[in-house]
Amino acid sequence: MHELPITEEILKVVLKHAQRNNVQRVVSINLQIGKLSDLEDEWIQRYFDHLSRGTLAQGAKLKIERIPIKMQCNSCSQSYEVEMAGLGKLVCPYCKKEGGSLVSGREYYIKDMEVQ
């Protein structure tokens, strides 16, 4: 739902690094986004294509690596992965107790980009 403001931020950061590094063209951008975010990859790309028109990043491909949702068990402290749908009934696979704290899954990160 909020792909547009997120995409604006991505473009801003990308253009800043492109200018600093004397880039002629941005080929692709590698993002890490947590699985807890409901962003649609397709819409981020569409907004990006629109916003980046006429900039060094025009035509760049966004490659999105989805970071799994990881919980740490409140009882035995072991970490385990869980899908969005499993969040309402968390059971630790190690000690079988309920309840955990979020370790990862909320990432919004630009790792690197390929440029010419």
Partner: peptide
């Protein structure tokens, strides 16, 4: 065409 190279960005998208 210039060679493709990799630039490390390492920034939070929502840093601002």
């Amino acid at each position: 065409m210039a060679e493709v190279r990799l630039i490390e960005v390492k920034e939070e998208i929502l840093a601002d």
